[in-house]
Design a protein around this nucleic acid. Structure first.
Length: 942
DNA sequence: GGGCTCACG
DNA sequence: GACGTACGTGAGCCCG
């Protein structure tokens, strides 16, 4: 629902709730672990009572609970003593703060807080927005500081006294109307908040003065007219202090918010999530009371954790319930039919859209047809490029008769597809976006069912259409194989008979539409609307641009390297066969294992589950150390390692990259999958340009083939230590934060802290170990893993870890908290609210370890991924005036191609975007740093 | 098509 | 007390 006239926004002052609850209740701890939960219990009770009360009274259409983020706000910069005389927080209250946020979410109410602003400012901002939109507002609070907001449909409500506070109450308390409350407060000051005001003037006097002079500014301007000498002097002498006080008490109506009023729409609690939370808190009485209530409320099934195809009891239209019937699908072959569809799209304002083409590679694919769906069960397919024949050598290239001419159809569709008022819904719509872009059509605005699923279900399953359809629509779409076959006999889609294509393609649009209808309303309930709207959807056009731009690759450089590698491989092979005494396939791990451990009797061979010897690099490296006991084996292993490195570089890079050079553009166009990695990272495919070698000198030379065209320069910017910085922030490690603040060598600092050695003249080995531990922490460290990585005894590795935790206790707390959060909620979150589901977290057996480490890693890796996504989304606008293109993303690096004269400007601008990418949604305690490099090729720029 | 190996962050 | 373990990816090759 769009917020507007007739809407009623309830804003609950969460911090006030907490303090009231804390002081009203005796200290209460959770039975199982002694966690203090008294305030949480009181908070939940108040929230529950409020919900029940609201049902009987003046029902809100929108609701949110607002919290203070931290004690430091912009007011402290204005006046350092502001709120400085507040008593220290009770020790058992602070840990309950995050739980109250969780409680709020469990009740399915938006939980809002913003760094640098008080809850009051957010309440003020939302009130203003709601009022301006023509709606009404009730602020659930009795805080006098909020009374300045009353009027124009805004009232307050005291939840304890069950009493509305409106203009009359304000007049009674301040002696002036709400619009002059600020003036009175500025004069009277406030001893609780340490607002100075004018000495000797209280509310009574202040009210009198304001009544007489109208407002504060007039009063101050005409202060010399005041008869009482004492008052006159005070006002003249303390005018500045009074003005500062005014700034302190005036609430900000323009707090930056990264959501809209619409997203605060009232939602029924998700019974499972709510009961899960209350149960986890071990609130028995409340759990029971809520359970009783919920039964009456006929809960909706949970879209995230509930059974995949659970029938809904709600009255909402059930897209899944309609059967899939191909009778509702039609071929559009006349202009009149097409016009009819376009008219229907305009009526409804949205359309599910899908293209059929001849290839999965959007840069080479030819458009074959377009399918549309507007109403579930009804869809059409517009064949445009179907051709005669079976696709064999003798197939003719003539178009099948009876199809609309492509240019005519596209011209008719273009206005709708580009209309800002019509949503184009796709499944992986980046593909269609690129196809249409090549036909001069800019698809916008867009929705993507794949990304809707990714925002809600990351970690639960993949997000391809077939998977989603089977899971959520209980329908198995026609496999593409039934259309085009597979293997040798596979044909392209333009050879599919049109009636078959109609069934297949129209169904895809139908499925997409139904998934959208199902998923869209679930976004709010899963609390990932902001994630979808700020991190997923806007990335689509950005990536499409990057992919279409491609990166120039110099074929000759690659081809020369391939030749050199080929020669080297032959040499190595001969040498290896000589050492082995027999000829065998060096590329076969199985044969290699047998040669090494059976024929040559090298000790230490270990067979894996498949019965073959393990011959990974780590194993072979161990063998190379046997120079004394088994020189032949050691030498062989060393040569095989060399061979493997070269073979990898040749086959994966120098050879196959050449095949990916697009003949039309002369460039390589990767494809990024947005919903591939669970953590929010992108993945690059066809080819993967995120794993181009860099660690070895030999491999790095492959980057020399990624070049800038004449007159242009490659620029690379990469975040320095972004994951460790995020760890320092999330786990709140003062020593780490300080080291980053001071720009220190973070690994050396760690080593110094752990081993008590000075950073100056540090043994590189010691630093290396500390570095391994720092990375290990990000991965969910284990003694075994660290031991293997550092090749040291396990006990020693465990000793390092113990010392590390001792030195940085916050890390241990973060790891424990993250795992228990995952266990309680079934997911973990990034700082930006991205959810990563952890369905295996409560598993038994070896899977448990994996799930725990993944849960520990996901918020860190995921937050870093969110940060660079934000930077990428802002980048096109930021560099609009610069002759530059963003080409590639490699997790913490962005690669640009820039006109020579614009290089400095690009670096300055892009660096700024990257370093401030977290803001304003998140204010990190640690600043982000992006390092820049430039050169004629990627190797030189990196 | 699964397993192994290895390239990246 | 034993087990099995660093996180996230994609691609090429071998082999059944």
């Amino acid at each position: 629902m769009t917020f507007g006239k007739g809407c009623h926004l309830h804003l609950i002052d969460g911090s006030a709730f907490i303090f009231r609850a804390y002081h009203a209740l005796p200290p209460l701890t959770r039975k199982s672990d002694g966690l203090p939960v008294g305030a949480v219990a009181g908070f939940c009770n108040m929230l529950f009572r409020y919900i029940e009360g609201a049902k009987n009274g003046d029902m809100p259409t929108h609701v949110a609970v607002i919290f203070d983020h931290s004690s430091k706000t912009f007011r402290n910069e204005l006046f350092p003593a502001y709120k400085a005389n507040r008593p220290e927080l009770p020790e058992d209250l602070r840990p309950q703060f995050p739980l109250t946020r969780e409680a709020t979410r469990a009740f399915n109410i938006a939980s809002i807080e913003t760094e640098g602003f008080e809850a009051d400012d957010i309440i003020a901002t939302l009130s203003c927005q709601a009022r301006d939109a023509g709606g009404r507002v009730t602020i659930i609070s009795s805080d006098k500081d909020l009374m300045q907001l009353i009027g124009d449909g805004v009232v307050m409500y005291d939840e304890i006294k069950k009493k509305t506070i409106d203009r009359d109450e304000v007049m009674e308390k301040f002696g002036v109307g709400p619009e002059r409350v600020v003036d009175v407060q500025s004069l009277a000051g406030d001893s609780v908040d340490n607002v100075p005001g004018a000495p000797g003037i209280g509310i009574k006097t202040a009210a009198l003065l304001i009544q007489e002079y109208g407002d504060l500014e007039t009063l101050l301007a005409r202060a010399d007219e005041i008869k009482q000498p004492k008052r006159r002097e005070t006002l003249v002498n303390f005018a500045d202090q009074i003005r500062v006080s005014k700034q302190l008490v005036t609430l900000k109506c323009d707090t930056p918010l990264d959501f809209t009023l619409d997203s605060l729409e009232v939602r029924e609690p998700d019974p499972e999530a709510l009961m899960g939370f209350l149960n986890g808190m071990e609130f028995r009485t409340l759990t029971k009371r809520v359970a009783d209530k919920l039964k009456i409320a006929a809960p909706l099934p949970d879209p995230v954790h509930g059974p995949a195809s659970a029938p809904s009891q709600s009255a909402a239209p059930q897209p899944a319930a309609l059967p899939f019937d191909h009778a509702g699908y039609e071929a559009v072959t006349t202009a009149a039919d097409l016009d009819r569809w376009i008219a229907r799209i305009r009526e409804v304002g949205h359309v599910a859209f899908d293209t059929e083409t001849t290839s999965l590679d959007e840069m080479r694919a030819d458009l074959v047809g377009i399918s549309l769906a507007v109403d579930p069960g009804k869809a059409c397919y517009i064949p445009l490029g179907h051709r005669q024949g079976g696709g064999d050598l003798f197939a003719s290239d003539t178009l099948v008769e009876g199809q609309l001419p492509m240019d005519l159809a596209l011209a008719a569709l273009k206005p709708v597809l580009e209309d800002d008022a019509i949503l184009k819904i796709g499944q992986n719509i980046k593909y269609d976006l690129k196809i249409m872009a090549r036909h001069g059509i800019r698809l916008a605005p867009i929705e993507d069912t794949m990304l809707l699923s990714y925002a809600m279900h990351a970690g639960l399953h993949s997000h391809g259409m077939d998977e989603l359809s089977e899971r959520y629509l209980n329908h198995r779409p026609i496999p593409i194989k039934e259309m085009i076959g597979s293997g040798k006999t596979q044909v392209t889609f333009d050879r599919v008979a049109i009636p078959d294509a109609v069934r297949y393609a129209a169904e895809d649009a139908d499925v997409t539409l139904r998934l959208w209808q199902l998923f869209k309303p679930q976004l709010h309930r899963a609390r990932v609307t902001t994630v979808y709207e700020t991190l997923e959807r806007p990335l689509v056009p950005v990536l499409a641009e990057m992919e279409m731009a491609g990166v120039k690759v110099d074929r000759d450089v690659l081809s020369r390297m391939s030749n050199a590698f080929a020669q080297k491989l032959v040499q190595l092979e001969e040498e290896i066969h000589g050492l082995a005494g027999t000829k065998f396939n060096v590329g076969s791990p199985k044969q290699l294992g047998e040669v090494l451990f059976d024929q040559l009797q090298v000790p230490g061979g270990e067979k894996g589950k498949t019965g073959a010897y393990a011959t990974g690099a780590d194993v072979l490296e161990d063998v190379t150390t046997l120079e004394d006991s088994h020189p032949q084996g050691a030498k062989l292993a060393a040569r095989v390692l060399d061979w493997r490195q070269i073979a990898k570089l040749k086959s994966t890079y120098t050879d196959s990259l050449q095949d990916h050079i697009n003949p039309e553009t002369g460039r390589v166009h990767t494809s990024y999958s947005i919903a591939g990695a669970n953590t929010g990272r992108l993945a690059s495919t066809d080819p993967n340009l995120q794993n181009i070698p860099v660690r070895s000198d030999e491999g790095r030379r492959i980057r020399e083939a990624f070049v800038a065209p004449e007159g242009r320069v490659m620029v690379s910017l990469d975040y320095s230590q972004i994951e460790l910085r995020i760890l320092a922030h999330i786990a709140d490690i003062p020593a780490l934060k300080q080291a980053f603040r001071e720009g220190k060598d973070i690994h050396a600092m760690t080593a110094s802290e752990m081993f008590g050695v000075p950073v100056e003249g540090m043994d590189p080995m010691v630093r290396r170990q500390a570095k391994a531990i720092n990375f290990g922490v990000i991965y969910g460290i284990s003694g075994f893993g660290l031991a293997r990585n550092l090749r040291i005894p396990r006990a020693e590795a465990q000793g390092f870890i113990d010392r590390y935790f001792e030195r940085f206790p916050g890390i241990r707390a973060y790891m424990d908290d993250t795992v228990s959060f995952a266990k309680a909620n079934g997911f973990v979150q990034t700082l930006f609210g991205r959810k990563i589901n952890t369905p295996e977290i409560n598993a038994k057996g070896p899977g448990a370890g994996f799930a725990k480490r993944a849960a520990i890693n996901a918020p860190i890796q995921g937050t870093a991924a969110d940060v660079i996504r934000r930077a990428m989304i802002r980048m096109p606008k930021a560099i609009a005036g610069i002759d530059a293109k963003m080409l590639l993303q490699v997790h913490d690096e962005l690669l640009f191609e820039v006109a020579e004269r614009d290089v400095d400007r690009l670096i300055e601008t892009a660096r700024d975007v990257m370093e401030s990418a977290a803001e304003p949604a998140v204010k990190l305690d640690v600043h982000l740093v992006a390092d820049a490099g430039r050169g004629l090729n990627w190797a030189a720029a990196h």
